[in-house]
Structure formats: C-alpha cells, structure tokens
Simulated scan of single mutants.
Amino acid sequence: MRTRNLMIAAMIAAFSAAAPMAMAQGDGQGTKESASSFAGDTVITTKVKAALLKEQATQSLSIKVKTVKGVVQLSGSADDSAQIDSAVRVARGIDGVQDVRNDIQLKKTGDR
C-alpha cells in the first residue's frame, strides 16, 4: 500500500513539473493556449493513472493513458471485459475528461 502511494505521488510530481516547462517554451498566444492545453491534459492523464491504480479491478492491469485536448485514450490489455469496462468508467469519472477512447484489448486465452 505504501509503495503504491509513493508511486502515485511520484507520478503526480513528475507530471506537475512538466506543465510549467511546457508553458515556459512559448512566447505567442497560440503557444500559451497549447501549453495550457498540454498542462490540463497532463493533469488529466495523471489523475486517470492514479484512479486506475486505486481501483481494485484495474490496479494490476498494464494500461497506457494518453490525453489530447481532454480526450483520454486507454490502451493495453485486460483479462476480461469487466476490467475494460471498469477502466473506461474510472476514466470517464475524472474531472476534465471530454471523452474516452477505449483501445484496450482482451488477452488471448494462452496469455492470461
């Protein structure tokens, strides 16, 4: 439990550090909007990853999370459709998520 909490804290710290760096790179209005969008997407990605680690049905899964303009893309693999449904439900429950794109694949019987 302590290790998982440390991992979550480390992920949040790492992603939080990336947002100011992205904003510092731009000097035009369009860049500021891009940096702001990037920062928001980074926060959403971090929150989704943390929530997936907390959720009993998804914490053992190897799910990749990517967010672009509020749209979360989930990819990876799961043992059954209930795990996939749970991952999608968790992602949709995060503030700021506009939509969820589910690209999680079911593992083949021999891979489980």
Rank of each mutant, 00 (worst) to 15 (best):
K49A: 07
Q56F: 01
D85W: 03
K107R: 07
I63M: 11
S81I: 06
I12Y: 01
R2T: 02
V43H: 07
K64T: 11
N5P: 06
E33H: 11
K49E: 01
A35L: 03
R89P: 02
Q29G: 06
G70S: 09
L74T: 08
S37R: 08
D95N: 12
I8Y: 01
R101E: 07
N102A: 04
L53E: 00
L52N: 10
M23D: 12
D79H: 02
Q25P: 08
V68E: 15
A35Y: 01
Q56E: 15
K54S: 11
D85C: 01
L52F: 05
S86V: 02
D79E: 04
I104G: 06
G76L: 05
K49T: 04
A13C: 08
A22F: 11
D80H: 04
D27R: 15
Q29M: 03
L53H: 03
A17C: 12
A51H: 12
S77A: 14
A13N: 05
L74W: 04
T46F: 02
A14N: 11
I44E: 06
A10F: 00
V90S: 12
F38E: 00
T42G: 15
V88W: 05
K108H: 05
T3A: 14
L6E: 13
V43R: 07
R92I: 00
D103I: 00
D80G: 09
